[in-house]
Amino acid sequence: MDITASIVSHGHGAQLAQLLDDLAGLAGPRPRRVIVTLNVPEPQRVAPLQGRHWPFEVEWLPNARPAGFGANHNRAFERDARLGASALLAVLNPDLRLRANPFEALVAALQTDARIGAAYPVQLDAAGRLQDHERLAPTPARLLRRHLLRRARELAPGQSPDWVNAAFLLLRRAAWTEVHGFDEGFHMYCEDVDLCLRLQLAGWRLARADAAVVEHAAQRASRRHLQPLVWHAGSLLRLWRSPAWRAWRVRLPAEADRPESIHRP
């Protein structure tokens, strides 16, 4: 299948090995190329993986120094273009597990409408509970409701999300190229919000593939550690000052702070 997957490991060698094994064991369509960015050195864990034969092409990109989430995926897909560009690009977190093959359903979702720029799976945790991966734009008021009132679900039944997290996205290269990929000014956090908003502002749509289900061990590091919290706060400030945010707010001025409203880009 004409898909290139990008995985960034920041000391995730054990989880990376599991994900690569999951990809190799998929029955049916799977990526033809996997690009693994090693954001920090981890030779003891990675060397055995580099020495194995995989049923897909694997490119290893070691970083001289750590880069941000968006920058790493951008570099991977630029590398893919030089090697022979795939039509579809998959952003995969190393902490995913693929218990069944999600790619066929994701590709089918893209094929239902030529203006769907990104398809995404349903994300569950290890206990089978639905993850909070579809959300509305993170206004200050919504963030207060989320954290003070512990409102974990923002979407009403049938409501379209403004953005979805980038633990697993399957994108058309045409859409990715049009919006110039991730904004590398976001070191970590909110780059997926920004990408989803810019895709939709450019006329592309997001689509959930209900038949595609993955397991994601979300870390929520910004709730437990100071440095991720600082990054998260800085990313929110960058997002709220961005042209994409201003354009999105102008587009839906009356609905932006009403969780019950239905957003259909």
Score class of each variant (00 low, 15 high):
residue 1 M to L: 10
residue 3 I to P: 01
residue 3 I to K: 02
residue 5 A to L: 06
residue 6 S to K: 01
residue 8 V to C: 15
residue 8 V to K: 11
residue 11 G to T: 02
residue 11 G to N: 07
residue 15 Q to S: 10
residue 19 L to M: 04
residue 19 L to Y: 01
residue 29 P to F: 03
residue 31 P to E: 00
residue 33 R to V: 03
residue 35 I to T: 05
residue 35 I to F: 06
residue 35 I to P: 15
residue 37 T to S: 15
residue 38 L to W: 03
residue 42 E to F: 15
residue 43 P to D: 07
residue 46 V to M: 13
residue 50 Q to S: 11
residue 55 P to Q: 13
residue 56 F to L: 12
residue 56 F to R: 12
residue 61 L to G: 15
residue 70 G to A: 07
residue 81 A to P: 00
residue 84 G to H: 02
residue 84 G to T: 01
residue 86 S to I: 02
residue 93 N to M: 06
residue 95 D to R: 03
residue 96 L to V: 05
residue 101 N to C: 08
residue 101 N to F: 01
residue 110 L to N: 01
residue 112 T to Y: 00
residue 114 A to T: 07
residue 121 P to G: 13
residue 122 V to P: 02
residue 122 V to I: 14
residue 126 A to R: 15
residue 127 A to P: 10
residue 132 D to A: 12
residue 133 H to T: 14
residue 135 R to V: 04
residue 136 L to E: 01
residue 139 T to N: 13
residue 139 T to Y: 09
residue 141 A to C: 09
residue 143 L to N: 10
residue 147 H to R: 13
residue 149 L to C: 11
residue 150 R to A: 11
residue 152 A to M: 07
residue 152 A to F: 08
residue 152 A to T: 10
residue 153 R to L: 12
residue 153 R to Q: 12
residue 157 P to L: 01
residue 161 P to V: 00
residue 168 F to L: 08
residue 169 L to H: 03
residue 173 R to Y: 02
residue 177 T to V: 09
residue 181 G to Q: 00
residue 184 E to H: 10
residue 184 E to Y: 03
residue 187 H to W: 15
residue 188 M to V: 09
residue 188 M to T: 09
residue 189 Y to I: 00
residue 190 C to F: 06
residue 197 L to V: 02
residue 197 L to E: 01
residue 205 R to G: 06
residue 213 V to G: 09
residue 216 H to L: 05
residue 217 A to D: 13
residue 218 A to V: 11
residue 219 Q to R: 12
residue 220 R to K: 13
residue 221 A to N: 14
residue 223 R to D: 12
residue 225 H to Q: 14
residue 225 H to V: 09
residue 225 H to P: 13
residue 227 Q to M: 10
residue 229 L to R: 05
residue 231 W to M: 09
residue 233 A to K: 04
residue 235 S to L: 01
residue 236 L to Y: 04
residue 238 R to E: 03
residue 238 R to T: 07
residue 240 W to P: 05
residue 242 S to C: 07
residue 243 P to N: 08
residue 244 A to V: 10
residue 245 W to G: 05
residue 247 A to H: 11
residue 248 W to S: 00
residue 248 W to E: 00
residue 251 R to L: 04
residue 252 L to S: 12
residue 253 P to E: 02
residue 254 A to T: 11
residue 261 S to A: 13
residue 262 I to Q: 13
residue 264 R to N: 09
